[in-house]
Amino acid sequence: MNRILFIGFCLAVAFAIGVGLWVVGGPEYARRVEQDRQRVFDLDVLADQITCVGQVKRVLPDNLQGLKPCFGRQEANRNDAVTNAPYRYTVLGPDTFEVCADLAIDPKAARRTLPYKNDLVLRGGNTVCLERRKFIAD
């Protein structure tokens, strides 16, 4: 009886370790997930900065060159920390814009590990975008 219980426990632990590692991925996968989380975090800070500047100047900037952070806000990263590729900024309308980045992992697979998932727009390939609306002044 105890032999069966002992073997059962060993199998349960082996199952938990095996399936657990399969679900979360290995160290390389975890590193890439962290890099993707940083990219999405950067997009969020950048979008906040653009929104803030757009609110003060009452118009969205044409591009990110010369973009200064609002008073008391942190400077946003404009380039991908790993690939050094610039994040893409596109004005969609008078009040709306999007900032995009290419992720290391397919966003559909990695979606569960990304923050701000409700704001994220999935594009083709590994591209994700944050779509924001400038605060409309009176």
Binding site: A16, G20, V23, V24, A30, R37, R112, K117
Partner: peptide, 27 residues
Amino acid sequence: LQVLVDLLFDNDGYAAVGRIRFGVSVL
């Protein structure tokens, strides 16, 4: 095992992945 069950029903949660990593490390 409970977090794996949670992921089976609710395909979401960065914290869940962290809990699995820690639990697997302990095991």
